[in-house]
Amino acid sequence: MNIHDALKAVAWDRAEYFKYKFPAVRFDQTKGIKTQEDFLRVVNKKTMNPYLRWEKTQEYKALVALMLQSRTADDLQEVYNVVAENAKTGDDKSVKLFLALTREIDAHAKIAMKSMERFEEDEEEDDDLII
């Protein structure tokens, strides 16, 4: 599950708050960043208190973890590109780091493949047939 799928599962105003708090999560990056007043007007609230309380819940923490996981994947890709280029020049430390990074990526890929297999199995079981 990615952050966008997870946000579909929470109340719309909480999803909007999450996007307000973390603008990088929004699909449309061309729109400007909302002010607190703009956000409150959209969700028709007078204060931020319900959202500040929500930040202390497991649901919010899980969403933050998913968001950070996606950021980590992007950062890992950037690091991989830099290390790979340095390894190609023959830098010994970069070669060792490249090999370690490759093993780590392979381990994460195996975990991801298992998750995808479970996701595909769940989709196959739910064929939307009405009996």
Rank of each mutant, 00 (worst) to 15 (best):
T35H: 12
K19W: 01
W54G: 00
M116G: 00
V42W: 03
A65M: 11
E124S: 10
I105N: 08
R53P: 07
V43E: 03
E124Y: 08
T47Y: 05
W54D: 09
E55P: 11
V43G: 01
V64T: 09
K21I: 09
V43N: 08
E124I: 14
A65C: 05
E125M: 10
F119P: 01
R118G: 07
E104Q: 11
A24S: 14
L52Y: 11
S70M: 13
M48C: 00
A112P: 00
Y20K: 06
P23C: 12
R53T: 14
V25P: 04
R41A: 14
N81L: 09
E117K: 05
T57H: 05
E124G: 05
V95L: 07
T47Q: 00
D92F: 12
E120T: 10
F27N: 03
D38C: 03
E59W: 02
A107N: 04
A100L: 09
W12L: 14
D127W: 07
L68V: 05
A87R: 01
E37Y: 10
I33G: 13
G90V: 05
V79R: 09
Y51K: 04
V82G: 01
P50F: 09
F27A: 08
F18C: 02
T57G: 06
N44L: 12
K31G: 05
N49F: 12
Y17E: 04
A15M: 02
I131Y: 14
Q77N: 14
E125L: 14
T89Y: 07
A11Q: 15
D74Q: 14
K93E: 14
V83I: 15
Y60N: 10
H108N: 09
R14H: 11
L129Y: 14
A73R: 13
E104F: 15
A109W: 02
E16C: 09
D74V: 15
K93A: 10
W12F: 11
D122S: 12
T102Y: 11
D28G: 07
K114L: 02
A109Q: 13
D91Q: 11
R26F: 00
D38S: 07
L63K: 05
